[in-house]
């Protein structure tokens, strides 16, 4: 009988553990852990992919680096978790990761029903189509009756279905679970065209055996604002992620780069610069961070423009005059003031 009662109390304890809910905030968790857990794709060049040294690099990975620099003072204190399109939201809401920075499109249904909050955009994309040059196609409208390779579990499937339905065109989807699968399908001839976000198509083309064989069709059929996502219900953490991104954009606008940030902090006559870099007002304290949060992010990771130039330009996606340029130069990358 003694054994049974022991067993019972053990089980009851376990039951209590099941029902217990963690009350610490994400910021406290991250600070206690000393590292940021960041969900990325891990296989899209320019966004998040390991470099030759085995380090995760890309515009998505850099956002996590910047958050880690702002929160922990060290941009290297990041653990990257590679996630498929289907896994990503569950990983976030279950608390497996602190922030999801995985070329994720902001849509109403994701925002309203998944228990997630979208912060701001680090890349504004749109869905395009890539075909073999040899086929001599000029427009998506020429694709009536074609087989099209697509990654399953993404918004691209839906955009394609909408566009073809709208234009009364027929097609056959050929769905693969990974972006690598879609490239192999295209190269192997399983489909006549491939569709994805234009930036990903550029990344895919750079990985084909012969990139000059492929060409993009001119139409961009969707809006794909991509950016970091956080769990719903932790407003402080959402503010931290949002404003870290804003700080990187503001830094570019104000001309603060990773190389001149020390000089700017020492003597800049512009009060906006001083506020970002920790002088004149307590911007860090308002977020629950140290006052050199933005300084650390800019110093260790670089401003938005530097990040773009390092990771996205090599894919052949020019920034000048595109939507991803600053609002002062004709783009729509815009950040509210830090003050």
């Amino acid at each position: 009988m003694k054994k049974i009662s022991l067993l019972l109390s053990g089980i009851t304890l376990m039951g209590l553990a099941f029902t217990g809910v963690s009350t610490a905030t994400t910021l406290e968790d991250v600070q206690a852990r000393g590292e940021l857990r960041c969900g990325v794709d891990g296989g899209v060049a320019g966004f998040s992919a390991p470099n030759n040294a085995g380090r995760m690099v890309g515009i998505d990975a850099s956002i996590c680096d910047a958050i880690a620099a702002a929160v922990l003072g060290d941009s290297n204190a990041v653990v990257y978790v590679s996630l498929t399109a289907a896994e990503r939201f569950t990983a976030l809401t279950a608390g497996e990761i602190d922030v999801l920075s995985r070329n994720t499109t902001h849509t109403l249904s994701r925002d309203a029903t998944l228990g997630t909050n979208f912060t701001y955009y680090n890349f504004i994309d749109g869905q395009g189509f890539m075909v073999a040059k040899a086929d001599g196609l000029a427009s998506v409208k020429d694709l009536d009756g074609a087989s099209i390779c697509v990654q399953t579990g993404t918004t691209t499937e839906v955009n394609m279905a909408d566009y073809f339905r709208n234009n009364n065109l027929d097609y056959t989807p050929v769905g693969y679970s990974t972006s690598v699968g879609t490239r192999e399908g295209l190269e192997g001839g399983a489909c006549d065209a491939i569709t994805s976000d234009a930036s990903q198509l550029a990344a895919i083309r750079s990985e084909t055996a012969n990139p000059s064989d492929w060409t993009m069709l001119p139409e961009i059929i969707s809006k794909e604002p991509l950016g970091p996502v956080v769990r719903q219900g932790d407003d402080q953490w959402m503010d931290i992620v949002t404003w870290t991104l804003h700080a990187l954009i503001n830094a570019e606008e104000l001309g603060i780069t990773s190389s001149n940030v020390d000089a700017m902090r020492a003597d800049s006559p512009n009060p906006s610069v001083a506020r970002i870099l920790g002088g004149e007002s307590e911007t860090g304290a308002m977020l629950g961070l140290s006052n050199d949060w933005a300084y650390n992010a800019i110093k260790q990771v670089g401003n938005y423009g530097e990040i773009y130039e390092a990771h996205v330009e090599p894919l052949g996606i020019a920034r000048a005059g595109s939507v991803n340029d600053l609002w002062t130069r004709g783009g729509i990358i815009y950040s509210p003031p830090i003050r």
Binding site: G153, S177, G181
Partner: peptide
Amino acid sequence: AMAVGYEEVVAVWANISLNQTGQA
């Protein structure tokens, strides 16, 4: 089948539909 693009229940339901609706 997901690896080669055959549209069976895991591919169209547990993957595509799950992703569109979020009803895991």
